[in-house]
Design a protein around this nucleic acid. Structure first.
Length: 768
DNA sequence: GAGTTTGAAACT
DNA sequence: CAGTTTCAAACTC
């Protein structure tokens, strides 16, 4: 997108960089600025990672947005400074060092507006990161410029806007707007600066600002006022911004009105319409490519969080549920410990005082979302790529159609999930630092309250959710004694915090007990490094080192450890293999196995690309069919025979959690089957959380998914992306139907996928 | 909704 | 590593 502003920006930027103050700042800051981002538009997976900083503060002053908007609108204008100054005062009031925290100069990695009390929240994420490095506080102008550049240059590969709707929006509280900014700079340098500020303003103001912004700068990033649905709508419709990509998932979070509207617009396309729209609008070839063809790649590259958007955690701030992305956290910590100057923007935001003061806090690009990847990278680059990929995939999946269907019920869920992932990192760090963020606390309390209120009728909730159309992919545990700190707890096992729908008692699996959760998790991992790994492992790439038994177990995926069923004949969900939609394997110690997805003895083999339900044994079929008839799984059949085990549901939680649900709960194993399994790299584990429901992809994201998924499965992906999934026994397995299903022509011809054998407790983990 | 069944997880 | 207990989901009524 070439906009007039672009040139202006560039020039202004240059000036800025040349200015004495800038130099001075640079001299003070360890961070080395990369000359104004120049848009090289390389989609480096690592580069993309953006760590959004999350900063929430209830109060605010009213300028925030205006400032922001102005900045983005016309960075080069001097007024910005003044505007900033104003904001600064406000921010300072809030206890935040504006200059430090809010460093406009920093590219905007992610911007989110959160209106705690408002009906809606909007999070805008610019996954793309600016390469411009502006670590110094005084570079206000720079930020604007950078931002602009990002947009105009198309450096920002995508902009995701995630609006959140709060149920209590009706209350019309004073609008507290929270703006988060995070940006990545200097990809190679890995410096990320996050700026955060809080502003409080009236809706009207926001709305007008938003609208004006849109109208004035269609090309620029759209920072909107969360509340205004209208604004949102406008954005969506207009989203012309090449760099702007709406995250379907996000959409689900829109206020009801908006959702409906949006739904109308996008329903037919399975939630992808907005993407398409964006694509159409994109003038920038690069962007276009990204959207149309590279979206997948982008996702892959940028999203490293399995369950949820890891990366942009901030982005998902609005979600209550948080994924426990321990790995990421660990990685992040590791990096921190190592003394790298890769501090998360989150930290900055969280700790206002620190923000400005420590320039070192800049985050290395990619840390946010790609933290895992980065951490892993050192160990295994290829693996990292895979990881990223899968997360990206999930992101795509996000756009859940389901959400649209039952926005009310699901919104919150999605919400929570997102938050989870997003906030996990941040929170973890906070915990580490001993800093409990007000935001977190508030969130936690909020959802705790919800939880408590709902605990009275857990089942009702569950049913309600289930009825909501399987829309809810989130896990809802019902733990009574485990405190949700053991693997018994599905939430905990899935790496997510318990949320409102859970009916657990004495739950410790909440952000407020993050330290406990982490400690517990660590303990469990010490016992079994793969404890949190996906239970079902799937592979995409044929690996030579196939085990002997591969022949007997053609399935594309297998349960990590195998089941131990005695009475269920592996025909009920008691059986983890069955639940995960995979056949039993040699690893299983089951008795009387009749697993419809494949028997231990190999009698029931699922062909590649074939619906697993196809049983060779008639008797088994009957049993299976009977079972299916009773379960939600059946639902999938119609829509997507290939993905029998999965339920069509909701795209919404895809990022987040288990999108599947039979009865609202997805077979856990599926998670693995999805991207996560693919992610399994042989490092300890890659986020268990990430789930990619095949059917969802197929169904809703076909346009995108087809290109993407198949590649992964096919092994077409670059070597680096090769998935090294392993099954304990090195089994050869056929590709999961789900994914295959996405492949036109059935994947019969598809190549066989082989699971690499993994040491039972692989070297995966070098634990820190 | 309550009770039972089941098998994984945890414990010994 | 095997046996037992605990636990919560899955299932049945």
């Amino acid at each position: 997108m070439d906009t007039p502003e672009k040139s202006q920006i560039s020039s202004s930027l240059s000036k800025f960089e040349d200015s004495p103050i800038f130099k001075y700042i640079n001299s003070l800051s360890p961070i080395k600025p990369v000359k104004s981002m120049h848009v090289t538009q390389t989609f480096n997976p690592l580069s993309f990672a953006s760590l959004p900083s999350i900063f929430t503060s209830p109060h605010v002053s009213s300028h925030k947005e205006s400032r922001f908007l102005k900045c983005s609108t016309d960075p080069s204008k001097p007024e910005l400074s003044s505007a900033d100054g104003t904001k600064v005062s406000t921010i300072q009031e809030a206890g935040v060092d504006v200059q430090e925290n809010f460093d406009p100069g920093v590219s905007l990695g992610v911007v989110s507006f959160e209106l705690p009390n408002e009906p809606s929240r909007i999070a805008i994420e610019l996954p793309q990161t600016l390469k411009y490095d502006c670590g110094s506080p005084d570079c206000d102008p720079a930020p604007c410029v950078i931002e602009t550049n990002c947009v105009s240059e198309s450096t920002c590969t995508s902009l995701a806007i995630v609006p959140f709707v709060q149920e209590d929006s009706q209350k019309g509280l004073s609008d507290g707007v929270e703006v988060q900014e995070s940006s990545e700079k200097g990809l190679s340098d890995g410096v990320e600066v996050a700026a955060t500020f809080q502003i409080e303003r009236k809706r009207e103001t926001l709305g007008s600002d938003w609208e004006s912004l849109i109208s004035e700068t269609s090309d620029l990033l759209i920072f909107n006022s969360p509340n205004n649905s209208e604004a949102f709508r406008g954005v969506i419709q207009k989203s012309l911004d090449p760099g702007t990509t709406f995250c379907p998932t996000s959409i689900s979070q829109f206020p009801q009105d908006d959702i409906n509207d949006y739904k109308d617009q996008t329903e037919g396309t399975g939630g992808l319409s907005e993407i398409n729209h964006v694509n159409e609008s994109f003038e920038d070839d690069n962007v276009t490519n990204f959207v149309s063809g590279s979206l997948t790649d982008y996702m892959e590259n940028h999203m490293s969080v399995p369950y949820s958007f890891k990366p942009g955690s901030n982005l998902h701030r609005g979600f209550r549920r948080r994924c426990l992305d321990f790995e990421m956290v660990a990685a992040r910590r590791k990096s921190l410990d190592s003394g790298s100057n890769t501090n998360s923007s989150i930290d900055n935001k969280l700790e206002p005082g620190k923000v400005g003061g420590d320039s070192s806090r800049c985050i290395v690009p990619g840390i946010g979302l790609h933290l895992n990847a980065l951490a892993i990278a050192s160990r295994d680059n290829s693996n990292m790529k895979l990881d990223t990929l899968s997360s990206g995939t999930q992101k795509l999946i996000l756009p859940c159609s389901t959400t649209f269907n039952s926005p009310a019920a699901d919104q919150e869920i999605a919400h929570e999930s997102f938050l989870a992932s997003a906030s996990t990192e941040r929170e973890t760090d906070d915990v580490k630092n001993g800093v409990q963020l007000a935001e977190d606390a508030s969130q936690a309390s909020t959802y705790l309250a919800n939880e408590e209120s709902n605990q009275n009728s857990p089942k009702k909730k569950r049913r309600r959710l289930e009825q909501a159309g399987e829309s809810d992919a989130c896990k809802r545990c019902n733990c009574k004694k485990s405190k949700c700190l053991k693997l018994y707890c599905e939430c905990f096992a899935a790496g997510v915090y318990c949320i409102e729908p859970c009916s657990c008692q004495d739950c410790f699996n909440k952000p407020i007990h993050e330290d406990t959760v982490l400690a517990t998790r660590k303990q469990i991992e010490s016992r079994n490094p793969l404890a949190f790994a996906p239970k079902v492992i799937r592979t995409s790439d044929p690996i030579p080192e196939v085990g002997d038994d591969s022949i007997t177990t053609p399935a594309s995926a297998r349960h990590k450890r195998g089941c131990n069923c005695k009475k269920s004949n592996c025909l009920k969900k008691y059986c983890e293999c069955f639940q995960g939609g995979v056949g039993c394997s040699i690893n299983c110690r089951c008795e009387g196995c009749k697993n419809a997805f494949g028997r231990k003895d190999g009698s029931a083999i699922v062909e590649v690309g074939e619906p697993e339900e196809e049983e060779t044994d008639p008797s088994d079929n009957n049993a299976t069919n009977t079972y299916f008839e009773k379960t939600d799984i059946l639902n999938n059949e119609e829509q997507n025979p290939a993905a029998l085990p999965t339920t069509p549901l909701q795209l919404c939680r895809p990022l987040v959690q288990l999108p599947f649900s039979s009865k609202g709960k997805p077979p856990r194993s599926f998670i693995a089957i999805g991207s996560s399994s693919a992610l399994y790299t042989g490092h300890r584990y890659l986020k268990p959380n990430i789930i990619r429901p095949p059917n969802i992809i197929e169904k809703h994201l076909q346009s995108v998914a087809e290109d993407e998924t198949p590649e992964i499965l096919r092994g077409n992906s670059s070597p680096g992306t090769g998935i090294k999934t392993s099954s304990p026994n090195s089994k050869r397995i056929s590709p999961p139907q789900c994914e295959l299903g996405s492949t036109p022509g059935g994947g019969r011809s598809g190549r066989k996928l082989i699971l690499q054998s993994i040491p039972s407790f692989p070297s995966l983990t070098p634990k820190h």
